[in-house]
Design a protein around this nucleic acid. Structure first.
Length: 324
DNA sequence: TTCCAGGTAGTCG
DNA sequence: CGACTACCTGGA
């Protein structure tokens, strides 16, 4: 017997849900879209809960939930507020952006765009490692494959959904088809296709990093402690994970821990910042990162998000590519 | 077909 | 420390 809830979350400052889903943030893939609602499975208080979300005509969030057990509405709405960063006051952000002529044009392109957080820190660690890849499309497929192969499967009225596997499960997964085959020893079925290994998820050479990182999260690195650390301390700690360099570390802290002072610096942000603030110069990525964190402070994560989306929509990104 | 992208890890000086 | 290259995979 499924329990259902239906309620509304009103937002005081702008929110654009579909823009938030489709702005290329690599914290979690876009949700399944069906009958006007976006669907995704969450674990809330260790219980599975399907969330269906849409924006109604006045911009509020219309929420429908389905879960085997009763879950307090308060817990559900607080999860939703966390995932979509609904507690961030975007009007304050826009005041901040308005003060910088380089940033103010981003507002019109990004109205209502919010940081789209990960389900939880561990999932964020792994999907961020997988994101050091060339295309969002491949990254999306990889994350979905990992969930489908090793996550827990739950059925709801709109179909099957999978959780992200735990550190213990993911840490024990075969890296490639050879290892998968070896685990069968002599009981190998005839026409067997090897697909339950990490490389089959298209993560390439990151497969071994992902497995090792999962093991380290399980045994060594306590993610809960990270939340209370000073930023640079937390940064240095996640850097110890294999496959995690400066860019991925900042993504983990931004999307997995809500640390808004993070300024993840990829090649695109580097090009955009150089174009806007240091024309003709060539800065090192750590210099760009430092510039972002010093100048944008608590808004650094949003500035990075807004600059990227603005650059993409305004055609700036294309021109920066050609120039090379 | 070859080449390139994306960020990290590893190697060399 | 800095500069350079290998790593995978799929799209140009």
């Amino acid at each position: 017997m499924k329990k259902k809830l239906n309620f509304i979350i009103k937002n005081k400052t702008p929110l654009n849900l579909s823009l938030t889903f489709n702005s290329g943030q690599t914290s979690q893939p876009p949700w399944k879209e069906e009958k006007g609602y976006f669907h995704e499975l969450f674990m809330i208080d260790r219980e599975p809960c399907l969330l269906k979300v849409r924006q109604d005509s006045v911009g509020s969030l219309d929420i429908v939930t389905e879960s085997p057990e009763d879950l307090p509405k308060k817990k559900i709405s607080s999860k939703i507020r966390e995932i979509f960063s609904l507690n961030d006051d975007l009007n304050q952000l826009y005041d901040f952006l308005s003060e910088d002529p380089k940033l103010s044009p981003t507002i019109d392109f990004c109205k209502g765009l919010r940081l789209f957080k990960a389900h939880n820190p561990f999932e964020c660690v792994i999907s961020s490692i997988a994101s050091s890849n060339c295309s969002i499309l491949r990254w999306t497929r990889s994350v979905q494959d990992i969930k489908q192969k090793w996550g827990e499967k739950y059925h709801f009225s709109s179909g099957y959904f999978y959780t992200f596997p735990s550190p213990a499960v993911l840490g024990g997964v075969p890296e490639h088809d050879l290892e998968e085959m070896q685990r069968f020893e002599d009981n190998l079925p005839g026409e067997f296709v090897f697909e339950n290994n990490l490389k089959a998820c298209g993560v390439g050479y990151r497969a071994k990093y992902i497995i090792k990182a999962a093991q380290m999260v399980r045994e060594d690195i306590n993610l809960k402690k990270l939340a209370k650390m000073k930023y640079e301390m937390a940064f240095d700690t996640v850097l110890e994970l294999p496959g995690v360099g400066p860019k991925v570390a900042d993504c983990i802290l931004l999307y997995g821990f809500g640390r808004g002072e993070a300024f993840p610096t990829d090649v695109w942000i580097k090009r955009i910042i150089e174009h806007l603030y240091f024309p003709g110069e060539d800065l090192k990525p750590p210099e760009i990162r430092e510039f972002g964190m010093e100048n944008f402070g608590q808004y650094a994560g949003y500035v990075q998000l807004y600059l990227f989306h603005y650059a993409r929509k305004s055609g700036l990104l294309d021109s920066l590519q050609k120039k090379k």
